[in-house]
Simulated assay, not measured.
Amino acid sequence: MDRNNEEEVIRNYQKGEKMMILLFAQWCINHDLDPVDIYQQAYPYQAKNTELIDALELTVSKKESDHIDSETLLDVLSMYGNDDLAFVVSEYIK
């Protein structure tokens, strides 16, 4: 793979990761949950997630949002390796 292709793959992954964070944040808003609190439960020893804070600025109110399927969120979290976060989210789904 040449350098340009590698950079394109990295950019696409980063875009997808940002969408995953926004999806998580909006799902939390839709369920009257605090995304920062949920994230801290999953990763208690990590510093604040600045990408999550940035994503919160892009969320809309519960009334304005489309439905986000919980299983879809869990799939996306797992796809990006956020298994601890997926576990915490699944506890809230129950």
Rank of each mutant, 00 (worst) to 15 (best):
M1E: 14
M1T: 12
D2V: 04
N4Q: 10
N4W: 02
E6F: 10
E6N: 14
E6K: 15
E7Q: 13
E7F: 03
E7Y: 06
E7T: 12
E7H: 06
E8V: 03
E8F: 01
E8C: 00
V9G: 01
V9C: 03
I10T: 15
N12A: 09
N12L: 11
Y13H: 10
Y13A: 04
Y13P: 03
Q14Y: 10
Q14K: 15
Q14H: 12
Q14I: 14
K15D: 12
G16E: 09
G16W: 07
G16I: 03
E17S: 04
K18A: 08
K18G: 04
K18H: 06
M19C: 03
M20L: 00
I21W: 07
I21L: 09
I21S: 06
L22T: 12
L22S: 13
L23D: 05
F24N: 13
A25D: 14
A25Y: 06
Q26F: 01
W27I: 08
W27T: 12
W27V: 09
W27C: 11
C28S: 07
C28A: 06
C28M: 06
C28I: 03
N30A: 04
N30H: 02
H31L: 00
D32F: 01
D32A: 05
D32E: 12
D32M: 01
L33D: 06
D34V: 00
P35N: 05
V36K: 13
V36C: 08
D37F: 04
I38H: 03
Y39G: 01
Q40G: 04
Q41M: 05
A42Q: 15
Y43E: 14
P44T: 10
P44I: 07
P44R: 07
Y45F: 05
Y45Q: 13
Y45R: 09
Q46W: 01
Q46Y: 04
K48G: 07
N49M: 13
T50W: 14
E51S: 14
L52R: 13
L52V: 11
I53R: 15
I53C: 14
D54I: 01
A55Y: 09
A55C: 10
A55K: 10
A55D: 15
E57V: 01
E57C: 03
T59N: 12
V60M: 11
K62F: 01
K62V: 03
K63Q: 15
E64M: 07
E64W: 02
S65T: 07
S65V: 03
S65H: 02
D69A: 02
S70V: 01
S70Q: 05
E71N: 09
T72S: 01
L73P: 12
L73T: 13
L73R: 11
L74K: 11
V76L: 08
V76H: 11
L77W: 03
L77E: 10
L77R: 08
L77I: 04
S78P: 03
M79Y: 11
M79E: 14
M79A: 10
Y80G: 07
Y80S: 08
G81D: 11
D83K: 06
D83A: 02
D84C: 01
D84M: 03
D84G: 00
L85P: 05
A86Q: 07
A86T: 07
F87R: 10
E91Y: 00
Y92I: 02
I93M: 08
I93L: 08
K94R: 04
K94E: 09
K94S: 02
